[in-house]
Amino acid sequence: MLNLMTIAKIPIADWMDHFVDWLTQFTGFFNGLTSFIGGIINGFQWVFDLIPIWLFIIIVAGITYLANRDTKKWGLIIFEVLGLLLIWNLDFWRDMTQTLTLVLTSSLISLIIGVPLGIWMAKSDIAQAIFKPILDFMQTMPAFVYLIPAVAFFGIGMVPGVFASVIFAMPPTVRMTNLGIRQVPTELIEAADSYGSTEWQKLIKVQLPLAKSTLMAGINQSMMLALSMVVIASMIGAMGLGTRVYFAVGRNDAGGGFAAGLAIVILAIIIDRLTQALNRQRKH
């Protein structure tokens, strides 16, 4: 019987190493990217550091109230206020804003890259055939694996954390944009075409507005995935609540780990409900 071990091992690991080595020669490009992403991160962080905690809580409660004007979800608002007060009380506030910064930056970049990519996939079957397996790959590859090249390209800190999160979190935005546009009824596309719309007019006036709620669901998913990356990203120096969990693991500190984990859960629920509410509100 043929023993596959006897033939030479296929050097996949070597190939990937060579590829990463080859990529690292574009230091200028990665430095530029680092300062760009770093700029976004610093921007968010600057805003969060500037806003007093009480004002931040009021803003979150206010947005929730406005987004749910019809349903008046007082329970959610009370949860948000108490949850944020708890985070403040536990002295996790600064960590929480760092985590939020990581999530928002990753989501923003996912959005900027993901939506056009999703549109392209919706418009071209060839693009869809090419990107679909790549997206599957991005999502199923264990997220830890992304940390290694991320460090190679961007060093240690928030930026490689954002990079790894973007790769892990972007697929839902792309997929849902594609799906949302493809789900627009044929008759509406025909209507848009038969009145002489250009491709751009069709996209802006018909396809994107009708795909909006699906697209928003994708963004919501991306944010949740980005949030799930914070603990992993903390291993390469992305500061935040994830760092607290990571340190607690190292110190075998079950209580501290739970407290930080609870803070992540509170943040996750707030982000999830807020984005869902914004989506609902825009539907007729």
């Binding site: 008759e187 025909e190 209507a191 006036k205 018909v206």
Partner: peptide, 27 residues
């Protein structure tokens, strides 16, 4: 040429007026 569709082909995100004006809007 203008077309009228079996299932109406109206844009659900637009008001009746904006639907009616669609052909003119894109011009």
């Amino acid at each position: 040429m203008s077309m009228v569709f079996q299932n109406f082909g109206l844009f659900p995100n637009r008001t009746i007026l904006d639907n009616t004006a669609y052909g003119l809007e894109i011009q």
